[in-house]
Nucleic acid binder design. Structure first.
Length: 271
DNA sequence: ATGGGCACCTGGCTGC
DNA sequence: TGCAGCCAGGTGCCCA
């Protein structure tokens, strides 16, 4: 589900409720997530104060006094801040209970999400070490995208969804960014011109930033930390709009599968 | 090195 | 109404 804007929206939503709070308990109701939650994790984090709520790509990083919790929302996960006595329902898999009387609750029907812990530098964690630069940082620029697209024959849509090359862009925003850049999703990455890579970088940054401003995109189950949906859905230009008229030129939006994922584009606006 | 396909899991919707 | 089949905001891993 969640791509960078949804994870960032979640981060901003939880930050004021968790930073400075002490972990009273970690209650694991269902350890069978993407990776099994380690049995000794509750004992390791109990009593520690949260020092920061960060994000790297689609991972949330809760910095504790001794170590960092790495959370991933997978396809269907969400985190909410709730009163400590809020009743649990199906697919609520763990609670991080704070001394404030609130808790951070993870719900994830498909259980593709994860809860991991590292005592060292989180950036050196195997899952984070090889990630590409943050798309909203200055290091993600036209030069960078130009360089990594050379000698790559994959379709550009698949390339921008590869987290070793570009981070934070998932299935929705890949189609949206390519629409904004005027580039067809099936184009071979290495055949993009210099101008096109520059346009694509700008499009990715703009789409992600605008989606963050709107609180992300809610298609099905995504909610922010306060339970509110994201409002970027109404700004979607192509995603899940196949057959509907392009908002720019009225040509029907097309859909096809690319690497087993649905791709949407306007055959007129994108070349 | 690169890229393709599969796996992990549940639930909602479609069509017979 | 029931059920099979398909689809869904991700991504690590195995193989060619």
């Amino acid at each position: 589900m969640p791509e960078l804007p949804e994870v960032e929206t979640t981060r901003r939503g939880i930050e004021p409720h968790v930073v400075g709070r002490r972990v009273r308990a970690l209650l694991v109701h269902e350890p069978r997530l993407r990776w099994r939650v380690e049995a000794d994790l509750p004992a390791r984090v109990a009593g520690q104060r949260v020092q920061a709520a960060g994000r790297r790509a689609k991972y949330l990083l809760l910095a504790l006094e001794r170590g960092t919790l790495l959370l991933h929302l997978g396809m269907s996960g969400s985190l909410r801040v709730l009163p400590a006595d809020a009743p649990r329902d199906r697919h609520d898999h763990f609670d991080l209970v704070f001394d404030s009387g609130e808790l951070l609750r993870f719900n994830d029907p498909r259980r593709f999400g994860s809860l991991l812990f590292t005592s060292g530098d989180p950036a050196a964690h195997p899952l984070l070490a090889a990630l590409a630069p943050e798309p909203l940082d200055d290091s993600f620029d036209a030069d960078y995208l130009w360089r990594v697209t050379r000698s790559r024959r994959v379709a550009v849509k698949q390339l921008i969804m590869n987290s070793r090359l570009v981070v934070g862009v998932g299935n929705i925003y890949a189609s949206e960014a390519l629409f904004r850049a005027g580039i067809r999703p099936g184009r071979e990455a290495q055949r993009l011109s210099r101008t096109e890579t520059a346009r694509l970088v700008r499009a990715i940054r703009t789409v992600l930033a605008n989606a963050v401003k709107a609180g992300g995109t809610t298609l099905r189950d995504y909610v922010g930390a306060d339970g509110a949906p994201g409002y970027f859905r109404r700004k979607l230009q192509v995603y899940e709009r196949s057959g509907q008229p392009c908002r720019r030129c009225r040509t029907p939006i097309r859909r096809r599968l690319q690497g087993q994922r649905a791709t949407y584009w306007c055959p007129e606006c994108q070349k």
